[in-house]
């Protein structure tokens, strides 16, 4: 569903992402793990079509910047940013119009109820707390029933109930055949859900591992993460 080939991105002579390649298949939850500044957000923003880059990104076998590709993916940014003067419901209506969705109202209502936002339908974007804005952002991305979805640090600002709900959303998306890519640096938050882990450090993918491969190694994800991202260890190797 998502194919990233030889992705590189340079900002002012700083190599933010360096020749990164990976794939996320339908019904697979891939996690982009890495310390701060590893290049995770740049990778996600490149896939979302917000940055220019070297390499190739295909979503549903079409170029990621094409209108067809955009119809297929959802994106939840690291920092939610809503329209200050649009109500929660109007945000969903805008998304429904922009993606030419039909009969979206029932799905929208279900999503709002699930994230305990059904009583906030008429609240303006500027009246919501950061956590609530994040919930609206998630609802907007889920409304389009995407074939591929990207979450950039999705748990930040969410309350425990919403975190629990989001984890079950991950699993439901997986069951529905959606390719899920989650970027985070908090290992605990995705421990139970991931199928494939892509560990990034200094712009490169330093480890690409499936859950089965990790089980065979008999080590914890945290231990492996610390080993491969430890700059001292890297220098010695």
């Amino acid at each position: 569903m998502l194919k990233v080939r030889n992705l590189s991105k340079v900002f002012d002579k700083v190599q933010a992402v360096d020749d990164v390649s990976f794939e996320v298949n339908p019904g697979e939850i891939a996690v982009l793990l890495g310390p701060n500044g590893a290049g995770k957000s740049t990778t996600i923003k490149s896939i979302a079509g917000l940055l220019r880059f070297k390499g190739q990104i295909l979503i549903n076998n079409t170029d990621n910047k094409s209108v067809e590709a955009k119809r297929a993916f959802g994106y939840i940014p690291e920092t939610p940013a809503l329209y200050e003067n649009l109500t929660v419901w109007e945000h969903l209506e805008f998304i429904a119009r922009a993606y030419s969705l039909r009969d979206w109202e029932e799905t929208a209502n279900r999503l709002l109820t699930r994230f305990e936002m059904d009583d906030k339908k008429d609240k303006l974007g500027k009246e919501l707390s950061k956590g609530m804005q994040q919930k609206v952002s998630i609802c907007c991305a889920l409304l389009i029933q995407p074939k591929m979805i990207m979450f950039d640090e999705p748990m930040i600002g969410l309350d425990p109930k919403a975190i629990k709900e989001l984890k079950s959303v991950f699993l439901e998306l997986k069951q529905a055949g959606c390719a899920v890519l989650i970027s985070t640096h908090i290992i605990d938050s995705i421990e139970e859900v991931w199928d494939k882990v892509l560990i990034m450090n200094k712009g490169r993918i330093v480890l690409n591992l499936t859950r089965d491969e990790l089980d065979n190694k008999g080590e914890s994800l945290e231990k492996i993460f610390l080993e491969v991202t430890d700059s001292k260890g890297e220098g010695e190797a």
Partner: peptide
């Protein structure tokens, strides 16, 4: 940026 740029427009 987050909502319109990523939409199929």
């Amino acid at each position: 940026v987050n909502m319109a740029f990523t939409a199929p427009l």
